[in-house]
């Protein structure tokens, strides 16, 4: 007993002297919102590598030690409640389509615009990214131009509905991100404008 106590005392002394007992950095991998697998690779500056690849795995790292461990959803909830509360909401995505060969939106898409207005009102300091897309027929130069024109048209509609133009950014991504993959495809579902509200 006495022996243990003296060992403890000397351990405390070592901790006071050395940085090895400093509060470790604690990294906790959380599950993905959509349930897909994910990982974080932790590189201690002292060297080595730890990979966290399962939800609620943890890494504890000091300048001289690194080890993995695990925690639970309940523990994360209590320990990091303020972080959960302060996290901004994820971007909401809306898709609108044009009537074939026209600048006229489909009826469903007009309804989407109303939903976008509701979404915009629900977030603090709302930002909108209006992203035009084309099908995969033609060159990047042509498709970039078409997609930007489509996006600009939607931007105007949103401004007409009362959304602050300063909160809207417009981009034409051309054929870089088709929903239906395949080159040189005349596909109406790819000719769309995505509005992301965040």
């Amino acid at each position: 007993m006495k022996n243990n106590l003296s060992r403890l005392t000397s351990l405390v002394a070592v901790c006071v002297l050395a940085t090895a007992c400093a509060t470790p950095d604690r990294i906790t991998l959380l599950p993905q919102a959509d349930g897909s697998p994910s990982a974080v690779v932790v590189h201690p500056k002292a060297g080595g590598e730890l990979v966290l690849s399962a939800p609620y795995q943890t890494a504890l790292v000091t300048s001289s030690r690194a080890e993995t461990g695990s925690t639970t959803a309940a523990e994360v909830e209590t320990r990091y409640k303020q972080l959960a509360d302060a996290l901004p909401v994820r971007a909401q995505s809306f898709l609108v389509y044009f009537e074939s060969g026209s600048n006229q939106l489909t009826k469903e898409s007009e309804t989407q615009l109303t939903e976008i207005l509701i979404a915009v009102k629900s977030v603090p300091a709302p930002e909108l990214m209006v992203i035009g897309h084309t099908d995969t027929v033609g060159t990047d130069v042509v498709n970039d131009d078409i997609s930007l024109k489509r996006a600009t048209l939607i931007q105007q509609k949103l401004v007409d509905k009362g959304i602050d133009p300063k909160s809207i950014e417009v981009v034409g991504r051309g054929k870089r991100a088709p929903l239906i993959p395949g080159d040189n495809l005349d596909e109406p579902r790819n000719r769309r404008v995505e509005i992301r509200v965040k």
Partner: peptide, 22 residues
């Protein structure tokens, strides 16, 4: 990064807790 680690990500959500008392 923190003062002790650099982290890389693979489509991830995670928490980092650190202290400047090193």
């Amino acid at each position: 990064s923190t003062t002790t680690v650099v982290m890389g990500v693979r489509g991830t959500e995670f928490i980092v807790e650190t202290t400047d008392e090193k």
